[in-house]
Design a protein around this nucleic acid. Structure first.
Lengths: 215, 215
DNA sequence: TCCCGTCTAGACCGCTTGGTCTAGACCACT
DNA sequence: AGTGGTCTAGACCAAGCGGTCTAGACGGGA
C-alpha cells in the first residue's frame, strides 16, 4: 500500500457506521482488537489481518459491514469520541463561560487525565490522530466536526479580552502552546499513582499560568 | 516486514560506517535520497527501494557498502549529527557554565531554529528519532552516545541550585517540559519570516521563564 | 594473459499488506 | 419446498517490502 497510501471507498456511506447503528457495537471482540491495534500503531501501520486474527472475525464479514479499513477505523473512533465526550460533557455545559480561565484549564487537565487513566489506549488514539498526515486528519474530521481547537482558541481570545492572559503573546501561540502541553500530558505525568499524576498535572497548569498570565 | 519489525545484522561492523570513513560521503546522490526519504517517513515506513530508485544506486552496491537498511540509516544520521553539533558547538564550549539559564535557553532556541531553517529535513530527522520505539532509539543511541538529555537535566539541576528555577517543581518535570516544547518548536514558530520565527521562539522562552523561574 | 578481489546490476525470494471474489450457510417469506 | 437476500469463511490477488544471490564488469599485481 505504498503507492496508494490512503484512499477512501466511493459509493459507500461511511456515516451509516456512526451513532446508534454502529455495527461495531455488535462485535465487542472486534472493537477490542481494533482499539488494541490502532492504539499501538498509526493508521497505515496497523494491520487489518492482525485485527481479524485477534478478533476471530472473517475478512468477508468485515468488508461487508465496514466497507474497508477506514470504515472500521471510523466506527471505532466514533465509540472513542463518544467516550471522551462523556468525560468532558459536565465541564463544557457549565464552566466554559466563567471568567476563571486557569481554573477551567485545571479541570480540562483533570478530565484529560481521568480519561487517560480509564483506558490508556483511548488516550493514545486521541493523540495519534494528530500525528497522522493532514489529508487523513481532514477525512476523519469530516465525520467528527466537534472542532475542539476552534472552541478552545475562542476561549483563549475571551480570556485575553477579560485580562487574564498577557496580551504580548499572540493568541495562536498561546493556543498552540497549551495544545502541545495537553497532547504530551502522558509524557509529563508518568508516575503510577493517580493522585501524584493529578498533582503533577496541576503543577503543569501552574507553570502555564505563571508563564502567560498578565503581570 | 511486520513479523520482524526491526532487526540488526550480526557479523557486521556498523561503527566502520561512521566518521571519516563513512561511505555515504562518496555517494552524494544516495545521501540526498536517504535524507529525503527518512525525513518524510519514519524508519519502518521508509522505502529502501525508493531511495535506490531516486539515487540511481543498485541494491547490490548498497548492501555491499552499508550491510542493510539500518547501516544506511546510521551512516546518514552520522552526517546529520555532525551537522547539528556544528550548530551547537560554539554554545556548548563557553556558555554552559554561566549562571544565566534562560539566556542559554534562548541561545539553544536560536541554534535549534537556525538548524531548522538551514534544512528542514534535518530538523525532521532529529525530531523523528524521538518518535521511534524504545528499542530502535536504544540501538541508534548506542552509536551516538552524546546523551543530550542527561547533560540538559544536570544543567537544570544546577539552575535550580543556583536559585534560578522555582524549587516547587520537580527537576524531571521541568526538564521534560522544556524538552517537549523544544521538540515542538516547528509547530510553534511556523510563520515564514525567519526574524518573526526567532521572535516567536524568544517569546516561548519568555513563557517558560515566567512559568518556572523562582518568584 | 591470467587471476583474484572489489564492486555493481538487477532478477529473484519469502513474506505481508489491503482488498476482491466465490461458494455456501442461514433465515424469512411465499 | 423454493427463492432471494444477508452474512460468513477463506482462497486468492497484485503490489510492495527488505534481503539474497549470481553473473559479470573492472582494475591492479604476477
Amino acid at each position: 500500500m505504498k503507492g496508494v497510501p490512503f484512499q477512501v471507498r466511493k459509493n459507500f456511506d461511511y456515516s451509516a457506521l456512526l451513532g446508534e447503528g454502529n455495527p461495531l457495537l455488535r462485535y465487542p471482540r472486534l472493537l477490542e482488537a481494533a482499539i488494541d491495534e490502532f492504539a499501538m500503531r498509526r493508521y497505515e501501520d496497523a494491520s487489518l489481518n492482525d485485527i481479524l486474527k485477534k478478533s476471530g472475525m472473517s475478512k468477508g464479514s468485515l468488508y461487508h459491514h465496514f466497507g474497508d479499513k477506514f470504515g472500521l477505523y471510523l466506527a471505532m473512533m466514533d465509540i472513542i469520541v463518544q467516550k471522551k465526550i462523556s468525560y468532558f460533557y459536565p465541564l463544557m455545559s457549565e464552566k466554559l463561560d466563567t471568567g476563571d480561565f486557569f481554573g477551567t484549564l485545571k479541570q480540562v487537565m483533570k478530565a484529560t487525565l481521568e480519561f487517560m487513566l480509564a483506558d490508556e489506549r483511548m488516550h493514545h488514539l486521541s493523540v495519534r490522530v494528530m500525528e497522522e498526515n493532514l489529508e487523513f486528519r481532514q477525512q476523519v474530521f469530516d465525520f467528527f466536526v466537534h472542532d475542539y481547537f476552534q472552541i478552545f482558541s475562542q476561549y483563549i481570545h475571551q480570556a485575553m479580552e477579560s485580562g487574564q492572559i498577557d496580551t504580548v503573546y499572540p493568541p495562536e501561540l498561546v493556543a498552540k502552546f497549551i495544545e502541545i502541553v495537553l497532547a504530551n500530558l502522558d509524557k509529563l505525568a508518568t508516575s503510577g499513582d493517580p493522585d501524584k499524576r493529578l498533582e503533577t498535572a496541576n503543577q503543569v497548569v501552574d507553570i502555564i499560568q505563571h508563564g502567560i498570565s498578565s503581570k
